[in-house]
Simulated scan of single mutants.
Amino acid sequence: MWKKSILMVLVGVLSVTGASSIYAKDVVNTNESNIVVPYMDYINDATVGLKITSDGEAQVRSSIVGYSSSVDKVKIEATLQQCKNGRWVDLKTWSKSYSSHKGNLGETYQVSKGYSYRVVTKFTAYSGSKTETQTVTGSEVKY
Rank of each mutant, 00 (worst) to 15 (best):
K3E: 09
I6G: 09
V9S: 08
V11S: 09
V13Q: 02
V16Q: 11
S20D: 07
D26V: 15
N29D: 01
N29F: 15
N31M: 07
V36T: 10
Y39S: 03
M40I: 02
D41C: 01
Y42C: 00
I43R: 00
D45S: 07
A46L: 07
T47N: 08
T47F: 09
T47Q: 15
T47Y: 02
G49W: 06
L50E: 08
K51I: 08
I52G: 02
S54Y: 10
E57M: 14
A58C: 13
Q59H: 11
S62D: 13
S63D: 04
V65A: 05
S69V: 01
V71M: 00
D72V: 01
D72T: 04
K75V: 12
K75E: 10
I76A: 01
I76K: 05
E77L: 04
Q81V: 08
Q82G: 03
Q82W: 00
Q82E: 10
C83E: 12
N85C: 13
R87E: 13
T93E: 08
S95H: 07
K96S: 06
Y98F: 11
S100K: 15
H101R: 00
G103E: 06
G106C: 05
T108F: 05
V111C: 10
K113I: 07
K113F: 05
Y115A: 14
Y117F: 12
V119P: 05
T121S: 04
K122C: 10
G128P: 10
S129V: 12
K130L: 10
T133D: 05
T133G: 02
Q134W: 15
T137A: 03
G138D: 08
S139T: 14
E140R: 12
V141L: 13
V141N: 11
